[in-house]
Simulated scan of single mutants.
Amino acid sequence: MYLKRFVELFIVYLISFVVGSFVYGIAFVTTNGLLILAGGLIGYCVLVIPLTIMTIRKMTKRATASGEHQPAQSRFNQVLAALPSYFYLATSDQTDQVSNSIVTFAQSEHHENVFYVATDPRTKRVQNILVHEQVAIASLADSELGLRFSSNHARARVIKGKPAITKLLKTNPTLTGLSANLSNQAILEITLTSVLIESFRDAPEIVQLQQQKTSN
């Protein structure tokens, strides 16, 4: 509450208090003037203090919801925010033949180093991951600064079947945006242990990624 609101509230309260006092008569007000003044101040404090506490709590909740009190983004998440949500995914088959394709991804709601890709279960990338879990990824470069990230330290697993996908969606409901029919598709869960961040301006930077504990 601003000072102006306190003053306005006090004026309204004072008017109502004076009117109420005069109901008892002029003689009562004259005789008990100091008592009335003391009672008015006490009543005002009793009224304002709870309102002030509730206002502060409301403002704190609003600031938290808007992210004002959230910890600063990690370096990797800052880079992710500046780039589109797709990257090149490289997989290999039994003969070490590499297949490369561009895919749309969604980041885990609980771990900054875990990403999900929805795909047809018959694709080459799915068949390759079932054989070789090690994969590599590379983002597209920002046109202005050439900002990009890549990683050869990545492993993937295939999540298939309605029960498994339903269980995953319970902890990551935003993944429904990957596809309109996830239950009939395969979801690739890609976990990174480190990434290389590069740009035209800055020296290459290797960022180690740690899987954070989730509250779920």
Rank of each mutant, 00 (worst) to 15 (best):
V18K: 04
I42K: 02
Q94F: 02
E189R: 15
Q70P: 02
Y24Q: 11
T60M: 05
I206Y: 10
L3Q: 07
H153A: 14
T214R: 15
T176A: 13
F6I: 05
L169V: 06
G67E: 01
G25R: 05
I197H: 13
Q97L: 04
T52Y: 12
I197K: 06
N152G: 00
I102F: 11
K4Q: 08
K213T: 12
P173D: 06
Q127E: 09
R62Q: 06
I42Q: 04
V12T: 10
L9E: 14
K167H: 13
Q211A: 14
F87T: 06
T123C: 02
V48D: 06
K4M: 04
V207R: 08
A141E: 15
G20N: 13
E109P: 01
T176K: 15
V114Q: 12
Y24D: 09
F149V: 03
S99D: 02
L169A: 05
L34Y: 10
E144W: 08
G20P: 07
A186P: 05
D93V: 01
N184Y: 03
A203E: 13
Y44N: 10
S101C: 09
K4C: 02
F28Q: 13
I36W: 08
N32I: 01
N113T: 10
N113K: 13
L209R: 10
V103A: 02
I36Y: 10
A203N: 12
L47W: 12
A154C: 07
K61M: 06
R157V: 09
V79S: 07
V131H: 00
D202G: 06
N184I: 08
A38D: 06
Y44I: 14
S151T: 08
R75E: 15
A72W: 00
I42S: 08
R5A: 12
G33P: 01
E109W: 08
L51F: 02
Q97E: 08
S101Y: 02
T30A: 13
K162V: 15
I49M: 03
A106W: 09
H69S: 09
G40W: 06
F6S: 03
I36T: 00
R5T: 12
L89R: 03
S151M: 03
T191N: 03
A90Y: 00
K213M: 09
G43C: 13
S194N: 15
A27N: 14
F200C: 00
K213A: 08
L80H: 08
S16P: 00
D96T: 00
L47M: 07
S99F: 01
L34D: 08
R75L: 11
L188M: 10
P163L: 07
V46P: 01
S66L: 12
N100I: 12
